[in-house]
């Protein structure tokens, strides 16, 4: 299964690249255009995809793909996305604890009281380190203090 899905994924990437790059001129060997390298790479990727699918078809490989629990990806990546969306308008003071709390949903071991205290401590620590010690221009709390 690994090889079948992996092969399909490679072919999909190749197709996306070809469709996206269809407007780019290939040029000639004498003067390579912007499309030549991406298209060649896409072709090779597609080829590897085909070979992977063939190797699955020939039945050499019977490796499963394991479990695909959604909990981790949804909450971890979701937490990062929420951070990206909130850090500008709400600042680190809100986006930081929000990220920690959302991410905590990803683990079954989370203890809620602990994580709430931890999220505030982490936020204060990161504010002190990044904003004040390293003076990186990350918003603190625009809705409260204006920056």
């Amino acid at each position: 299964m690994q090889n079948l899905l992996g092969g399909l994924l490679m072919i999909a990437i190749a197709v996306i690249a070809v469709v996206q790059g269809s407007a780019l001129s290939i040029g000639s060997l004498r003067h390579i255009g912007p499309g030549m390298v991406p298209m060649t790479l896409a072709a090779f990727l597609g080829l590897i995809g085909v070979v992977l699918i063939l190797s699955w078809w020939r039945g050499r490989e019977r490796v499963g793909t394991g479990r695909w629990p959604l909990r981790g990806p949804v909450f971890i990546l979701g937490a990062a996305v929420v951070f990206g969306l909130t850090v500008r308008p709400l600042g680190l003071s809100v986006a930081g604890p929000l990220l920690v709390v959302i991410a905590a949903f990803a683990s079954a071991e989370t203890r809620w009281k602990e994580i709430i205290i931890f999220s505030v401590c982490m936020m204060l620590f990161c504010l002190g380190l990044f904003r004040y010690a390293l003076t990186l221009p990350i918003p603190v709390a625009p809705w409260l203090i204006g920056y």
């Binding site: 971890i76 937490a79 990062a80 996305v81 951070f83 990206g84 969306l85 850090v87 500008r88 680190l92 930081g96 990220l99 920690v100 991410a103 905590a104 990803a106 683990s107 071991e109 989370t110 203890r111 602990e114 994580i115 931890f118 999220s119 982490m122 990161c126 990044f130 990186l136 221009p137 990350i138």
Partner: peptide, 28 residues
Amino acid sequence: PYRLMFSAILLFCSIGIYSINNDPSDVL
């Protein structure tokens, strides 16, 4: 414990990525 560490790592990474260009779309 890893249950605390992973969210701290995630927060550090996210702040770091944002700070490269001060661009939230990099985090996404």
